[in-house]
Computed example of a mutant assay.
Amino acid sequence: MSTRRTLAVVTAGLSQPSSSRLLADRLATATADGLLEAGQETDVEVVELREHAHAIVDAMLTRFPSGELATALDTVTGADGLVMVSPLFTTTYSGLFKSFVDVIDPDALTGKPVLLGATGGTSRHSLALDYSMRPLLTYLRTQVVPTAVFAATDDWAGQDGSDALTRRISRAGRELAAAVASRPAATGQDDPFGDTPDFAQLLGGS
């Protein structure tokens, strides 16, 4: 019986469809292929941050994520590995991406394998992956795989560089798959309030 892994895909694209989602999907597929070669099947769960934008702002103000955002956070913190992709604005990750990271418990991602990706207009912005995104996830003590993937507009237009992008995606996916496969399967996050009685129990004298 093969081991099943959960891969959470976080994408901060603002349009629909977005190049960030396209890149994230390809990175997830490459990772799943690598895990399948290792005899491990993958369940992929996608978190589209644009769908949680208002809830993320509310959580930053109240420090209490709720509803679908809380579910999304559980998906991310309980996964065996993460693919995280953001568009680049003014040479760094988007505000939406950073705000989501800010509402994650600072200790919840410790040791978790992460593959980083970014999209932007031209390749001259690609260094943002290493001087902004990588330090951010390293600060959270994640295990960021060596290869990060940047996709410029030309990469999606079928011009020179598309083959190089495919090779980078494949290499990055194999690295994340190897990192995930080498670790025990995630068991999810324990609910710190799981043993707390609800109001109905209290009123009923339970």
Results as ranks from 00 to 15, higher is better:
L136H: 07
Y139S: 11
A186E: 06
H54V: 12
F100E: 08
A79R: 05
V85F: 14
L73V: 15
Q201R: 15
K112H: 08
V145G: 02
A55C: 02
D198H: 04
T122D: 13
E41R: 13
T110R: 13
R21Q: 09
S132D: 08
Y131G: 00
Q16A: 15
K98E: 08
Q201L: 11
G39M: 07
P87E: 05
S2K: 10
D58T: 13
Q40K: 05
E37F: 06
R167L: 14
I169C: 04
G39R: 02
L203D: 12
R134D: 10
S126Y: 01
T119S: 06
F193P: 00
A53M: 12
A70F: 00
Q143F: 14
S66N: 09
E45P: 01
I56E: 04
D154W: 10
S170T: 14
R4D: 13
L203G: 05
A59C: 05
R63E: 14
L165I: 12
V46C: 03
Y93F: 12
L96N: 02
M1C: 08
T153G: 08
M60N: 10
T11N: 11
L176C: 02
Y139G: 11
A8R: 03
T142F: 03
S86I: 13
Q201A: 15
S66F: 00
D105K: 08
A177H: 01
A59Y: 00
T31D: 03
L140K: 06
D154F: 10
Y93N: 01
V9Q: 10
L61Y: 11
S94L: 09
F89W: 15
L140G: 10
D191W: 06
Q201V: 06
L27N: 03
S15C: 01
A148C: 13
E45Q: 15
V103F: 04
V85K: 03
P135K: 11
Y93C: 05
T153R: 12
G161S: 09
D155P: 00
L82F: 01
I169A: 02
A148H: 07
T42W: 02
D107M: 11
